[in-house]
Design a binder for these strands. Sequence first.
DNA 1: GTCTATAACCTGATAGAC
DNA 2: GTCTATCAGGTTATAGAC
Lengths: 232, 232
Amino acid sequence: MFPMEKSAPKVPSDRTTRDRLLDAAEHLFGIHGYKGAGMRMLAEEAGVNLGAATYHFGSKDALYIETFLRRFRVMNAERLRLLRESEEQAEGKPLPVARIVDCMIRPLFQSGLKHPSFQLLLARNLFMPPPFLHAVIRQELEPNIKVFQAALLRALPAMPDSLLHLRTMFGMGALLVFSFQMAQMVFERHATFYENVLEEMVRFISAGLQSELPPSPEQWLPFPFPPDSESR
Amino acid sequence: MFPMEKSAPKVPSDRTTRDRLLDAAEHLFGIHGYKGAGMRMLAEEAGVNLGAATYHFGSKDALYIETFLRRFRVMNAERLRLLRESEEQAEGKPLPVARIVDCMIRPLFQSGLKHPSFQLLLARNLFMPPPFLHAVIRQELEPNIKVFQAALLRALPAMPDSLLHLRTMFGMGALLVFSFQMAQMVFERHATFYENVLEEMVRFISAGLQSELPPSPEQWLPFPFPPDSESR
DNA sequence: GTCTATAACCTGATAGAC
DNA sequence: GTCTATCAGGTTATAGAC
């Protein structure tokens, strides 16, 4: 009934093997995709045994999910933190659109600079996640989207929210493709380069969000993000 | 030395088997990706034998390339046709940005309505083509991009062309993600729905392209499209 | 916790009968 | 042109020694 004294830490304490596995997975899943990278490949790059690999995570799917969530969670938290901080500074006044967009996409650039291989994995999974990741991402992203959508609606009160939803998705597309593009060339450029691209993207997306309203705005149905994919 | 009289047509004449294979490939590669769909799966859906499948195309890669190019080529040709037509109507005056953007993206919607499974395959491959497709796409896309870039520069003479290049890429991102999204729900909506989305996307992208210039425009290096991917 | 060995299965390609 | 049978190599997952 009593917990054992030497209660072996169920997961931690073996940082090395487990974490090297996660790093290898981040790298190789990013490059080759879920189907493209096998457990053997991962184990080899991590320098661990094949058996040990499945031992630590139970299954390939579980490893993939954990690899993705490890950084995705902190990135999303950072997004919310930046927005909250901006809103406190504004003291009740609605934020400018560009400022909100900045909070949305800046963490992606930061995370991309720190973890280039994750940026590849991220773009891949936001665009076309394998089926078992789909629900995970949605659940993780949902509160985030709600908060930003609300902030944008305060800044653009004349906009029907289904239209805002559609435009936000266009913006996500611009962000995603470029994020993938950027992952290929991190370390090749100076930090100011990324800051410039970030600013330019904020300009592009903000202009799109604020463009004139259509003459007869249709009631768009909401579009799920990430898109519903039949599989893979 | 003389060609045989009954010169058996090397490729055509067997439309059924070959074409059913292409259709199945379009469908299943679109859903599951290159690695996700095996030759067995394709052969089964096409109702042909596994051996016959590799016979007609030689290899899985060749089948994949042909499946993609079959529609990609006509889509790109249509893009150029629309632009040329618009330019003839304008009689030498530079076209409005929105008009150029319309010519760029309208064929994708049209093709998506006619061939929903291809739209999925297209988005997939423009975003992250398997390595052997990469060069093929670039070569096919290059003349197209040049023509549209030139038209946009005529419409936006104050814009540095490396900046235009960057912004065009943002636009491609918006288009791509939404195109993928749309592929999931073709047939569920009325035709006017798609026309409305198309117009809305033209508005979004045009506004982004025409947004104010950055205070000190940096000389961006060109970004390859599709992005350089290490693999898969 | 880590390893070896192996099970059960799937992959693309091919040789040869029809 | 189409089929069957098969090959050599890949996949994930697991059972059991250490």
